[in-house]
Every structure is written in C-alpha cells, then in structure tokens.
Nucleic acid binder design. Structure first.
Length: 277
DNA sequence: ATGTCAAGGTAGCCTTGA
C-alpha cells in the first residue's frame, strides 16, 4: 500500500482553515502532522476537517503552540506530551508549564509524533536551554518505537537547521539559534537512537527550504530555512518512495510562513511478507 | 503580486512570540 504522510506548521489552524482544506484536497495526504494550531482543543475546526474526510487528534491550550494529527486511515493510541517532557518557566509565571508541543498516534501501519520544538529565542536565553532539554526528552521518548519493527517517524517543526546549507546565508546566523553546535548535536543524538532524516526534494531552486519569514520579502528572495524535518526509523525510511517540500503552499495572501513536507511510503500490505515466505 | 502576522486583552490599539 502507498501511504502519504506530511507535516506542516500551519501558524493558526483557524486563520488557515481555507488553505488547510484546499491543501488536503490537492495534496491528499493520508496523515498530516500539524504544528502551531494556536487554538484550544475545543476551538479546533473538527467539523470542517471531518467533512474533508479526516479524523483529528489535537492538543492545544490557547494562543500559543498546539499540535495535531489528521488521518484518513485511522487514528489510534493517541498520546499527548512526551514522556518526561520538560516544562517552561515564563518570565511572569510562578510555575513551569508543560506546553502542548507533542502528540502521537498510530495511523494504519505507521506510528507518528507531531512535534513543535521550542524556538530558543537567543542562545543566552532560558528558552534555549529549554529547547535543548526538550530535544533530549524527544530522543528518550522515541527510543522504544525507533527500535521496533513498525514504521515510525517524528515529524514537525524542529526549529533547527541541520547544516549550513539549510539556511539561505550562514553568515547571518553566526551566534544565533537554529544553527548552533548544541542544537545540531541534539539532532545527531536522534540518529544514535535509530532515527535518520528523510531528505525532501525541492520543487524549485536548489534547496528544499520549508520556512520563509513573513518580513523583508524573504519568500520572493528565497531567504529560507529548512527546519521542518522528518526523522524515521529504518522500517520507515526504507519504505520512502519520494519526499518533497510543497513550496506552492507558501504562496499568496493568507499563507503560513512554513510549507508542508510530504513523504510517500510504499509499504508491503499487512501479511504480504508472511505469505511470500 | 509580496518591505509581517496572529491572538488576546482591552476598548479600536498594544503586547507577545515567531
């Protein structure tokens, strides 16, 4: 069977609902991981998504963060928050809050996490230390599924550019977040957990950027970054038949500042291996 | 085509985060 899985930082699912429904119709993913819903779970547009043919599992608390998984091939065993997910102590808060940044589900033959890794803000900021702790918790959370026989992937907005080629001008990022050695080491640690990156094709230009800031004409200048990533275990990556960034979705008025990443899997039908042997 | 955008509190603008 062929399964199309995608990830998209939608930057407000309510503001983006027409674009989301359009894209579900045109790209026809079987599973879509969403980040930055920016709404509470109650405010999620369940009815519109259902009419488009998808079930949804969502995790959101309000105006910040929020993640979800849409599926038209079933959605089971939903888990909200990483086991051991660190919280963040905001400047004006008295206690750490575990933010809605991770949700997992099993969709047909595949298990996925949809993750929105903390931004980090600045290297000297407490949010950066939080980001590194968060990535370490993600590795631990992924270990068991990564080692298993079922296709498994962690898809989302990692807020890390894996290499200097993944930002439009590395000279502008010296000393900044998203490119630091510690952040890249945190991605490398995912590989020691048995996950490896699915590298998408670019549909235009040479590099498959996934994010272009709204400011300073970043999109028309192609001043982009590749920070929306897919890490899969061997049963997942070995089944990949294609992957690309749908840059078209970044165009036009009312677009998210991120483009979707699409992964196509060619999986054996359940039981096919047993029948063949 | 494009020199931000979205949400929420608060009162039609400012703050926060990205």
């Amino acid at each position: 069977m062929t399964v199309r899985i995608a990830t998209w930082n939608i930057n407000s699912v309510t503001a983006r609902l027409p674009k989301l429904l359009d894209w579900l119709g045109s790209a026809a993913p079987d599973v879509l991981c969403l980040q930055e819903l920016k709404c509470s779970a109650d405010a999620f547009p369940h009815e519109a998504v259902r009419e488009a043919g998808y079930e949804a599992a969502v995790h959101g608390t309000g105006r910040w963060n929020g993640v979800g998984i849409l599926s038209r091939i079933g959605i089971e065993d939903v888990v909200r928050d990483l086991p051991g997910q660190p919280g963040y102590l905001a400047d004006d808060a008295l206690v750490e809050v575990v933010e809605p940044r991770a949700i997992a589900a099993t969709c047909g033959p595949v298990r996925v996490w949809s993750v929105y890794v903390p931004n980090g803000r600045e290297v000297a900021h407490a949010h950066y230390a939080y980001k590194l702790k968060w990535l370490a918790a993600l590795r631990e959370a992924a270990l068991e599924d990564a080692a298993g026989p079922r296709p498994f992937a962690v898809l989302g907005d990692y807020n890390v550019a894996p290499t200097d080629a993944d930002v439009w001008d590395p000279s502008l990022f010296v000393g900044a977040t998203h490119v630091s050695a510690a952040e890249r080491e945190a991605l490398a640690a995912l590989e020691t957990a048995g996950l490896s990156e699915v590298m998408p094709r670019a549909l235009k230009y040479d590099r498959p950027f996934t994010f272009w800031d709204y400011r300073q004409l970043a999109f028309p200048k192609n001043n982009g970054m590749r920070i929306d990533l897919v890490f899969g275990n061997a049963p997942f990556t070995s089944a990949v038949s294609d992957s690309y960034v749908d840059r078209e979705a970044r165009k036009g008025k009312g677009a998210s500042d991120h483009a979707p990443v699409v992964v196509d899997l060619a999986l054996d039908a359940p039981g096919a291996a047993a029948e063949a042997s």
